[in-house]
Design a protein around this nucleic acid. Structure first.
Lengths: 140, 140
DNA sequence: GTGCTTGCAAACGTTTTGCAGACTC
DNA sequence: GAGTCTGCAAAACGTTTGCAAGCAC
């Protein structure tokens, strides 16, 4: 957290209260949070911080490699610290996201690299499908 | 093409010129086309057809199973006939889409099903990454 | 004539941007 | 004081919707 602020300063950025509060929000609940959710958390302490500031700061933190965003299907992107990045299976029916360990993708990653020279990045976009529950015909 | 129009009629739909032209556009160039591109093609012959009509007709054709749409990263969704559905590798840097044969995903699909009961659908959302060219450091 | 379909315009949700003022260093 | 950062409002983007008129059947 302080390391990140130091990194910001190193890159010519200023340490402002909105940046500090945003980082707190990210460190405090390391799940998948949309920009709007993060804004709410931040605004609980400083109601004047605008959503556009959140977006601008998230963008900057992403440039510094501290934060990544993923697209879990339709709807808003979710942001989280880059340390805990992982791939997701997201159910098209109920929206539930399951975290998928990287080793599941080694065969696919190898095949894509060998046959197409393509290095897959399964973290940025989720893999969609249907979860066990919804496949049984349950209500989403 | 006439089969599809018959199918539309079977489901209580009417055969209109916008539907006919949209289907022509889809059959003529079977690539990945955004709603806007399809609208342009249609509007070349009938300039009054609105974009919203294209969206409504694509939705209806999707309900009938004739058309599917995929999300190839950021930007607009792309539509194509469902016959030729396949998964895509899309380069995050240059946007190039490579069609990936389904067999590449059998290992992953089996693992997801066995371990999570999750049935993956690799066609609706592309898998992102970096293509051979961009990995070499070439200009996107 | 019934009722599906259309064009238009306006709304939607998410994200980006332009600007003048406020802040960090 | 230089240069970054901010709030606000407005725009951008792809897509959806409400409505009255128009068309297929």
């Amino acid at each position: 957290m302080e390391d990140v602020l130091a990194l910001v300063r190193e890159h010519g950025g200023r340490v402002t209260s909105s940046r500090r509060l945003l980082l707190e929000a990210l460190f405090d609940s390391p799940g998948h949070r949309t920009a709007e959710e993060l804004a709410e958390t931040v605004q609980a302490q400083a109601p004047d911080i605008a959503l556009s500031t959140i977006y601008r700061n998230l963008e900057e933190l992403e440039k510094l490699g501290v934060v990544v965003h993923s697209h879990l299907g339709h709807g808003p992107a979710t942001y989280h610290l880059s340390e805990g990045a992982h791939c997701h299976f997201v159910c098209q029916d109920c929206g539930t996201a399951v975290e998928a360990p990287d080793e599941l993708f080694t065969t696919l990653a190898d095949a894509a690299r060998d046959r197409y020279g393509f290095e897959i990045d399964t973290r940025h976009f989720a893999i969609l499908g249907r979860c066990a529950n919804c496949r049984k015909g349950n209500e989403p």
